[in-house]
């Protein structure tokens, strides 16, 4: 499958990936409305760690044997066997944080959802769960510190 890889050598901590992710996952797709007015707030699923001397954008690895899927108590977190994409179904998620306690990379967060807090994670910007799209973070990175390439594994 195609995976996103972060290259810390090029990352300049500008957080444009976070902005692009948040806007893509908003209702309005408009940065001003998304940041200031939408409720519940749109969430970025990529997260930049570090500071200007060393930083890296952390994204879900779409693990072949995904700990978050193994742990999910509701069946919300699933891995599409054909595409390899791991997504969480907001309708089924109860916000228990089992996935948070299992993900080795800190790639899932629990944030306010339509009725109760639920899991948010990278969905590769697909239009439907489990189907990859074209990742907004990669397109937004000014420095090619995020690449979306065919990986050596499924």
């Amino acid at each position: 499958m195609k995976r996103i890889y972060a290259l810390e050598e090029w990352c300049i901590d500008c957080k444009r990936c976070e902005v692009a992710c948040k806007v893509f996952h908003s209702k309005s797709k408009d940065p001003v409305k998304a940041f200031l007015y939408e409720q519940p707030k749109p969430r970025n699923r990529v997260r930049v760690e570090g500071n200007r001397t060393l930083s890296i954008a952390i994204n879900c690895r779409h693990c072949p044997t995904a700990k978050c899927v193994e742990g999910c108590i509701s069946g919300a977190m699933t891995r599409n066997p054909e595409t390899g994409v791991v997504t969480s179904n907001p309708e089924k998620c109860v916000g228990c944080r089992t996935c948070v306690s299992m993900c080795p990379f800190g790639a899932v967060t629990i944030e306010e959802g339509p009725t109760h807090p639920i899991a948010f994670k990278c969905d590769l910007c697909g239009d439907e769960l489990g189907v990859p799209g074209s990742p907004s973070c990669v397109a937004a990175c000014p420095n090619r510190a995020l690449i979306y390439v065919e990986s050596e594994g499924n």
Partner: peptide, 29 residues
């Protein structure tokens, strides 16, 4: 505070975050 991937030493960090990295690319991508 909340743990980060950057808290791991560089070699281990690369190994953790770059599983299945394409063989035809270097670390600059």
């Amino acid at each position: 505070a909340a743990p980060e991937n950057l808290d791991f030493p560089p070699a281990l960090r690369w190994a953790r975050l770059h599983k299945f990295y394409p063989a035809d690319r270097d670390r600059r991508g």
